[in-house]
Structure formats: C-alpha cells, structure tokens
C-alpha cells in the first residue's frame, strides 16, 4: 500500500513533535527523533507511531499520554499511539538542534557515527570514536566513570580539566 503524507498529517506530526521529552524536557520528541509517523484514520481519528530509545525506557508511557493530550486539544477525538521497534532508534536520529540543546543543558551529546548498527565491542581502553568533550569547559581531556548513569541512555564521565562530572548521551 502506498501512503502519502497529507498536509493535515504533517501539521499533526509537528504538533505531536513539539511535546517535550518527559525526562529531558529541553528536547522535544521531534528533536529526540522518536516520532515516526502520524496517520489520519478518520475525521477526528489519528494513529501515531512512536519508537522507544531503549526497549525498556519507562518514559514511553508518559510520551504516549502527552501526545494523546496535545492531539485531543487540537480536535482529534480518537488518538492511538502505537510503539514501533523497526527501524531501531539510534542516537544518530537526534537532530543537530537537539544536540546543541543537550550540550547547553550540560549533557555531552552523542557522537555521530559513520555506520549504524551495534557498538563494536573492543577490549581494552582504546576506542575508535573521537573523545567526548566536556559540555562545561569544552576540554576533550575527559574520562569514563561508569558506562551507565542516571538513565540507561547516558554514561557518567568526568572532565580532567575543570574537574566537573557530567552525563554523556551515549551512542546507540
């Protein structure tokens, strides 16, 4: 079945995309890249496709409710939010504006990778990706404290120049 996006669908996608992320309210869902599509199913009926950042991300339920609320407010009586897994979300889906806002918020944004797919597992300290700059002072002299931080999507690092610890939105 060939589907084309209508003007109404584009408008609704923009409205749904303006919803802030419940855990990182500096980002919108559009900037986070988790909103996949909006399909109008009837006069006041709409289906939204949402993809989780991590399979177990607990924020997905809050996101669904927020999307329902904002679309109800724009006259859509019947809103269904469907979770889709394919294609899998990647940190490369975060927009350039999203990355800028993360850095401003004190979170080092994920580095953009050439190839998608799983993070290569390498033994030892040498990593192929470029260093993670400190979001506070910009120094690239930073070290990993823990691969997992306040949420699964972040790693905990420390800047060796300004001594501040910071979260890094790690590549997925």
């Amino acid at each position: 079945m060939v589907t084309t996006t209508t003007a109404l669908e584009s408008a609704l996608l923009e409205i749904a995309g303006s919803v802030p992320d419940p855990e990182l309210p500096v980002l919108t869902l559009q900037e986070l890249g988790v909103l996949r599509a909006v399909h109008v199913r009837g006069a006041e009926s709409v289906e939204v496709e949402l993809t989780p950042t991590y399979t177990g991300c607990p924020a997905i339920e809050a996101m669904s409710l927020d999307i329902e609320r904002v679309l109800h407010a724009h006259g859509m009586r019947d809103v269904t939010v469907r979770t889709v897994l394919r294609p899998a979300w990647s940190t490369d889906d975060i927009t350039a504006e999203g990355r800028r806002k993360l850095r401003e918020f004190g979170i080092a944004p994920p580095r953009v990778r050439e190839a998608s797919g799983p993070v290569p597992v390498s033994l030892g300290p040498t990593r192929t990706l470029e260093p993670v700059p400190c979001p506070h002072c910009g120094s690239t002299d930073t070290e990993l404290l823990s691969r997992f931080s306040s949420t699964a999507c972040k790693a905990l690092r420390r800047c060796l120049a300004c001594r501040e610890p910071f979260d890094h939105f790690k590549e997925l």
Binding site: T55, L85, S90, G117, V119, P120, L123, L172
Partner: peptide, 24 residues
C-alpha cells in the same frame, strides 16, 4: 524476533562490554 533483536542487540553490546571490562 528480528525487530526486537535489531533494537536490543545495541543495548546488549553495552552489557557485554560492561561484563568484559569488569572481568579484566
């Protein structure tokens, strides 16, 4: 299981790396 696996394989890469680094 392809859809879930394609998503979860990226998460598990971090679990594996974590376990390997601690084993070392």
């Amino acid at each position: 299981f392809a859809d879930l696996a394609a998503k979860a394989v990226k998460e598990v890469a971090y679990h594996r790396d974590h376990a390997e680094q601690w084993t070392l």
